[in-house]
Design a protein around this nucleic acid. Structure first.
Lengths: 208, 208
DNA sequence: GAACCCATGTAAGTTGTTACATGATTGA
DNA sequence: TCAATCATGTAACAACTTACATGGGTTC
């Protein structure tokens, strides 16, 4: 039930075609909610049937297929109702951690490979979030600019601040995962065959 | 396609009934992969059809309905194949962050309520992880004990260490989220109506 | 004998993925 | 004119949720 709200939220900034939404929702990690076009197009039509959005051909030309969706008053009310509700935290389903705990039967090299990949995945993610954050801080972020344009100047700090907050949270998550993977790899090195086990060294990762 | 591997991994420690697995997979956050019994029972039967597991009635009594599933050699091979594969990071779908960025049109009190809930959710989660970690460190964690029992003593440090690592990662994530929510709330206080805006104070959350 | 946990199942519906399919527009 | 991108759609399937359904065993 979150896709519809992600769509209404997106459209609350500015009207857009399904294609544009799909593009942003697919730039995998640049956004907070991923969805593919095959999910978006039907959902937009459902929202239109329910009166939450309405659509029109684009101004510029008589494009045959393209449709721009705009949020309606009813859609805004629906969005606000959702925003007021407490969110329900989805149950955790973590393929990385799940795999890690069963890796204990595999060679140390395999475990290290997974940790390396973990680190590089989050390094890439961190770059994405940092770039987005830079664009938010410098007010060059395209969708943020559009959102600010529709709001009075005294609200700009709040609007941009919340967006920055969300991105900072994600960036910090990514940094944590990188640090975690690095700690894990350094701990793992005591199990290398070519290295002597060093019985005097405490396991720095134990304890709370 | 991860449920089957979560099941094979679980059974690689010790045989278990669908009920027991369902119970552990539902203790929402104590585990790394959530699933409900209505998903688990059919999947176990599918795994049995494919020869990945086999089942028998429990030793103790002639319990009519209960069945214990055990992993087969083929199941272990399948699990190991999955463990060797690189994991594919699922696209992010984050209802908390999604909601946050659209909360900019709501009263500051509503935003704060969400952040408070965010903090208390992760505080609860942190408690869960800390307790699990305590049980792992003291080797009283029931399922870890069973896993260690089937392995030679020289592997115990690795087996327990990986489990601890996974839990530490989750605990650190939870701590980050708590700290993030607290920073966010203190930043948010500058938008309180009853408080004077303090133009001299820099926004500590801005910048990379 | 009522309440509660053990134990397993099915059915209907929603959500999300992957693949197939089509056609217009733009720029090299 | 070829390739890339714009633009929208459907179909089949896989994954997951919620609700309904049943019955045995234990304990108060």
């Amino acid at each position: 039930m979150s896709l519809r709200y992600a769509l209404l939220g997106f459209l609350s900034t500015e009207g857009a075609s399904g294609y544009v939404i799909a593009r942003e929702f697919s730039e995998s990690m640049g956004w907070f909610w991923h969805a593919s076009h095959s999910q978006i197009y039907p959902e937009l039509r459902r929202l239109e049937d329910e009166g939450m959005v309405w659509s029109h051909p684009p101004d510029d030309n008589g494009g045959r297929t393209k449709r721009i969706y705009e949020i309606s008053d009813q859609g805004r009310a629906e969005l606000n109702a959702w925003l007021s509700e407490d969110i329900s935290y989805p149950p955790s389903r973590d393929p990385e951690r799940t795999k890690l705990i069963y890796l204990d039967a595999m060679p140390v090299e395999t475990i290290r490979r997974h940790l390396e990949r973990h680190r590089s995945h989050y390094e890439w993610l961190l770059d994405v979030y940092r770039e987005q954050l830079r664009q938010v801080d410098s007010r060059t972020h395209p969708r943020l600019r559009k959102r600010l344009a529709a709001r009075p100047a005294e609200e700009h700090e709040l609007v941009a601040g919340l967006k920055a907050l969300a991105l900072q949270g994600n960036a910090e998550r990514a940094r944590r995962e990188i640090a975690w993977a690095e700690d894990a790899m350094s701990w793992l090195s005591r199990f290398d065959e070519d290295t002597q086990p060093k019985p005097g060294i405490e396991n720095t990762l134990e304890g709370t």
